[in-house]
Simulated assay, not measured.
Amino acid sequence: MTLDLAGQAILFGTAVVANFFSALSGGGVGLIQFPILIFLGLSFGTALATHKVASVFLGVGAILRHMKESHLERRACLIILGAGIPGVILGASLILKAPEKEALMTLGVLTISLGLYSIFKPKLGIDYTPKNWTGSGLWQGMAGLFVVGFLNGSITSGSGLFLTIWLIRHFGMDYKRAIAYTLVLCGFAWNGTGALVLGLAGDIAWDWLPALIVGSVIGGYLGSHIAIRQGNTLVKRAFEATTILIGLKLLFI
């Protein structure tokens, strides 16, 4: 279906706001953006594929900002991509066949748990203490990345938050560093893979994408800028608020 100018304006504004908060907290763009696509008239499958394509450009906006002062390490990037992308492909291949309600309720409980876990661990993610990059710890970490990749391919809200908390909890990153990896690798490479698989399996509302893409780049850039400039404490609070809101949305909306 084709949107009029007012509908395109809604898409653009939604994309800016959703991607700004996602870039600040390390995930959650689908909390706002995906439901709006359905509200404006797209079917679940078309909305999911269209959202995945648009969310790639959150990663573009983040890359544009993080290129200036990035702490991303090449080896860590390759590990996250290599372990996560197979999970993304599997998740995206199965999601359109899954029982939606049960999956979303389970995900809602897990997402709220992420926020509560961070709240009750006040030191979590404040300092950078790298660990588990070799030996059995690395293999366990890669298994976790595969699971998070599966979630990224199969769900619409919050998968980046799972990657952020896994990089912090298992690999010892701080919030700002973990969010940089999440936005660049999950936002661009993982979401790009999921978008390709879903696009081949379903429909994409191509005429809806320009407004979503421009809004995604702007919101991703601005959110990344604030995250870089502020300390880990503010970013941690944004993460906690986003996870709890997304979890409640998945459970009750």
Results as ranks from 00 to 15, higher is better:
73 E>R: 15
15 A>G: 05
132 N>L: 11
56 V>T: 11
66 H>K: 10
128 Y>P: 01
62 A>V: 00
136 S>W: 12
137 G>R: 12
137 G>E: 11
116 L>S: 09
20 F>M: 05
62 A>C: 08
71 H>R: 15
58 L>K: 01
143 A>I: 13
29 V>P: 00
144 G>I: 09
119 I>V: 14
20 F>G: 03
12 F>S: 04
43 S>E: 13
131 K>I: 04
112 I>R: 05
99 P>T: 04
60 V>L: 10
95 I>L: 07
88 V>E: 05
130 P>A: 09
37 L>Y: 06
99 P>R: 05
31 L>R: 03
29 V>N: 10
40 L>K: 05
84 G>K: 03
44 F>Q: 13
61 G>C: 07
18 A>K: 02
137 G>H: 12
77 C>E: 09
88 V>W: 04
81 L>R: 02
117 Y>W: 15
36 I>R: 03
36 I>M: 12
137 G>M: 12
15 A>S: 14
18 A>T: 05
64 L>K: 08
114 L>S: 06
20 F>H: 00
88 V>M: 07
118 S>W: 01
51 H>Q: 08
15 A>H: 01
56 V>Y: 02
85 I>G: 03
74 R>C: 04
78 L>S: 08
30 G>I: 00
104 L>F: 11
44 F>P: 02
64 L>Q: 10
127 D>W: 11
104 L>R: 12
129 T>C: 09
119 I>Y: 14
139 W>I: 09
62 A>R: 01
31 L>T: 05
137 G>W: 10
23 A>Y: 03
37 L>K: 00
140 Q>Y: 12
115 G>R: 06
70 S>V: 12
114 L>M: 12
20 F>P: 02
47 A>Y: 02
144 G>N: 08
130 P>R: 12
104 L>S: 10
81 L>T: 08
24 L>Q: 04
105 M>H: 13
99 P>N: 04
12 F>H: 07
58 L>S: 08
127 D>M: 14
89 I>L: 14
144 G>W: 10
125 G>Y: 02
99 P>H: 07
71 H>A: 14
23 A>L: 07
75 R>Y: 12
137 G>A: 09
66 H>R: 07
79 I>K: 03
28 G>F: 01
